[in-house]
Simulated assay, not measured.
Amino acid sequence: MTQKINGKLIQGHQVASGKGANSPYAQGTISTQIPLFQELGLDLSPYFRGTLNVDISPYTYHMKTPQFTFRKVNWTISHPPEDFSFSQCLIIYNDDSYDGWVYYPHPETKIRHFHNPSIVEVIAIPIPKIKYGDLLQVSINPIEIDILDFTA
């Protein structure tokens, strides 16, 4: 069972990929974190070393029972360990589907680079020709993630 949510690709802080001009992580946070997540049981090695920032407004989401939650991941000396959760998803773009994972650094353990709660971060396999402003869908597992509608 899946639920599809419409979204638009927007530019994030570009810290996950390391492409941001002010990123303190030259390789990007994802490249640094992937080996640690792999040791904990989640292999993200085939995926792009960055995140897609998908704006699903006016909706927000809540991770309720993600497939993976890793506590106190000590991935950098720059700040205290963080908690991360992951839920498998699909990105649907131009009628093609691409495997991915909703990447959720828990805000209560994160000290910088916060996102609007309507932004879903996704680690996905490389998607040809995708660019900021493109419309897409994220197909999520509603058992693991709640989509919240504050317009109703």
Rank of each mutant, 00 (worst) to 15 (best):
M1R: 15
K4Q: 12
I5V: 06
I5Q: 02
I5C: 00
G7M: 05
I10H: 02
G12L: 08
Q14V: 08
K19G: 08
G20T: 02
G20Y: 04
A21M: 05
N22C: 06
Y25D: 08
Q27T: 15
Q27M: 13
T29S: 11
S31K: 13
T32I: 14
T32M: 15
I34P: 06
P35F: 02
G41K: 07
L42K: 04
D43P: 07
L44Y: 10
S45M: 12
P46A: 01
Y47S: 07
Y47H: 15
L52E: 12
N53A: 00
V54C: 05
S57Q: 14
S57L: 04
Y59D: 14
Y61S: 10
H62L: 06
M63F: 08
K64M: 11
R71T: 11
K72C: 13
V73S: 06
I77L: 07
I77P: 10
H79L: 03
S85C: 14
S85W: 07
S87Y: 14
Q88N: 09
L90N: 14
N94L: 03
D95N: 05
D95P: 10
S97I: 00
D99V: 01
G100C: 15
V102R: 05
P107L: 12
E108T: 06
I111Q: 12
I111W: 13
R112T: 01
I119L: 03
V120M: 08
K129E: 14
K129T: 03
I130C: 00
Y132C: 09
L135C: 10
L135K: 08
L135W: 00
L136S: 00
N141C: 15
P142H: 02
I143S: 09
A152W: 10
A152D: 13
